[in-house]
Design a protein around this nucleic acid. Sequence first.
DNA 1: TATTGTTATACTCTATAACTATA
DNA 2: TATAGTTATAGAGTATAACAATA
Lengths: 154, 154
Amino acid sequence: MKQKSKTPMPPSLLESLVGYNLKRAYVIIENDFRATLSEFAMSPRVFSALTLIAQVPNLTQSDLSRRLGIERSGLVAIVDELEGNGYVRRVPVPRDRRVQALCPTPDGLTLYREAVRLVRAHEDRVLTMLGTEERAQLIGLLQKIRQCEQGDTA
Amino acid sequence: MKQKSKTPMPPSLLESLVGYNLKRAYVIIENDFRATLSEFAMSPRVFSALTLIAQVPNLTQSDLSRRLGIERSGLVAIVDELEGNGYVRRVPVPRDRRVQALCPTPDGLTLYREAVRLVRAHEDRVLTMLGTEERAQLIGLLQKIRQCEQGDTA
DNA sequence: TATTGTTATACTCTATAACTATA
DNA sequence: TATAGTTATAGAGTATAACAATA
């Protein structure tokens, strides 16, 4: 049961790859995120969707899928879940009868505000080892990587 | 078909979250990684496994699962794939007959060296907008996040 | 009892393709 | 023709639980 003290931790090639470090760091944060929002049974992607629906008026599903960088088909289940729990409504748009605007309900806005509080606390918890400046630096570097993806920024 | 120039890109809460930026950046890099290694039909996790098998002599599956941060059960398919393609062998260990050491074949080492070349080129390509210093900075920040995970470092 | 490798199983996330109703 | 929403489907990736062989 002894910790193997033999191998002096060879700095594997993996440790020098941004992709590998990105993945491992994200897994840690994702797990804590899920634990944090487990009381609401809300996954990261549902939280992201609710956030944009709460912030952007008259968002459509196509808008949302572009902003989140996922396919329209994948959004159906997400919106179904939010609508099924009474947090979002699909509202017909007179101008274009193909489209349905996504509108938060009062319950949805309440949930959103509470979830944001928890998520902010979660980030503080899981990023304790980074100072305020370092967190801003990290976000800046990640957004530079994201810039190579065209307009679907939000 | 006009680009909606109306919404002046509201800086959504999402953009201020490390977790969200991490995820979006990882998706970009992962996609390019897969495209890069598509000629070898090698997924990121298989590349990671092959890397450690090539670098660490007499690695066992339990060792490997700890280093990669995944379950032992999940490793079976990965090693099956590598062994099925002739890149890795499961070698019985006389000391402990429960254990099988994972040994790269000559073909496995050749593939590994070629894959490393491609992966290095891939990282250069997908991180063009980051200077050498910034890349090191990014890796440093990500590893700080990873430090809260105990010993399964490699 | 504990550990190694393994199987069976299920769940999440995501993508592709095809359909419908509108435009 | 093209777009919005939808369905069906399939494929990764991962986790849990249980098992046999071995320690």
